[in-house]
């Protein structure tokens, strides 16, 4: 074993109980490695909290605090305020994190408060597009037509009838210095965005797309590939906002049809059964097309 491995283990150690191929555990490790040891992390309730801190074991090599489902951003605000009072805010970074439900649904109010008050915190949302910890229920970030246990596909339903909430724009609308999206399909992009965010003072938001083999029903070895396909089909644009303005988006040379992303995932299997499914896929392609135009995703020659 090399020195580097030992350092890694100190920040986010092996032995956590995430499922094999978990995109969120990968995301958390990437974020923490990029942030380094001078970091305090607060965590919302959810898969990440459960699989990394079952007493008496913990995977965290940095000070880590979990309280409740919806208050990760609020307890982080308290930690940051305490560091300010102690005169330590210039030397210690604060990261607040949660899943899609803990961020976009139940935790949205606390997150908005954190951003509006200008706390020097990086908030990271690990978006696996449903309440996975409780058994794959629909969240505000579940994509259109996804089959979840509370938005099941059925005789008269093709899954979740509602669109995915745009969290990056919601955060950017707070005119915070930095709001961005990235994906574990692009680990170096994740780490460079974390480093960039942490170099900026004030509230920052990073939205990470993290596949869930269990909830998305894809083989565990396809986590990275599926994450890449979400970006390459323009269903998950990787973008950056500064003070409310879109400043960059990851350009795509060849934009793949959405079927390539949908097909390997069991949560979309119902769309590949009949003519109605084809029409639904056309609607999903429409969402991708809108993203291409809105975020100007096409690479110029």
């Amino acid at each position: 074993m090399t020195e580097k491995l030992i350092t890694e283990k100190k920040l986010f150690a092996c032995g956590h109980t995430a499922c094999a191929g978990c995109g969120q555990s990968l995301g958390a490790r990437l974020v923490l490695e990029a942030a380094g040891p001078n970091t305090i992390v607060t965590n919302a309730t959810g898969c990440l909290e459960v699989f990394s801190t079952r007493y008496p074991e913990s995977s965290w090599g940095v000070p880590w605090l979990h309280s409740l489902f919806e208050n990760s951003a609020a307890i982080a605000s308290g930690v940051e305020s305490a560091l300010k009072h102690l005169g330590k805010i210039d030397t210690i970074r604060v990261i607040s994190q949660g899943g899609d439900g803990g961020t976009a649904d139940i935790g949205l109010q606390a997150l908005s408060g954190m951003m509006e008050r200008g706390h020097d915190i990086l908030y990271v949302c690990y978006d696996n597009e449903a309440y996975m910890n409780t058994g794959i229920q629909r969240s505000g970030l579940t994509p259109f037509d996804t089959n979840t246990t509370t938005s099941p596909a059925g005789k008269i339903s093709s899954g979740n009838p509602l669109p995915k909430k745009n969290m990056v724009e919601i955060c950017a609308a707070h005119r915070i210095p930095y709001a961005a999206s990235s994906s574990v399909g692009f680990p170096l992009d994740v780490q460079s965005k974390v480093k960039k965010a942490l170099s900026i003072r004030g509230p920052k938001y990073l939205h990470l797309h993290v596949p869930c083999p269990l909830g998305w029903r894809h083989p565990s070895n396809l986590t990275i590939n599926i994450a890449k396909l979400a970006v390459e089909t323009a269903l998950f644009p990787m973008v950056e906002y500064e003070y409310g303005k879109l400043v960059s988006s990851r350009k795509l040379v060849t934009i793949k049809p959405v079927e390539e992303y949908l097909k390997p995932q069991g949560r979309f299997a119902h769309l590949f059964k009949d003519e109605k499914g084809k029409q639904e896929i056309a609607k999903i392609q429409q969402i991708a097309n809108q993203n291409i135009e809105y975020y100007n995703l096409k690479a110029t020659k």
Partner: peptide
């Protein structure tokens, strides 16, 4: 810290106490 709800008021002081203040 002026917060957006009592839930967050209690959470902020929780975080501050955990951080040793």
């Amino acid at each position: 810290i002026n917060v957006e709800s009592e839930h967050s008021a209690a959470s902020v002081v929780l975080g501050a106490s955990a951080a040793g203040v």
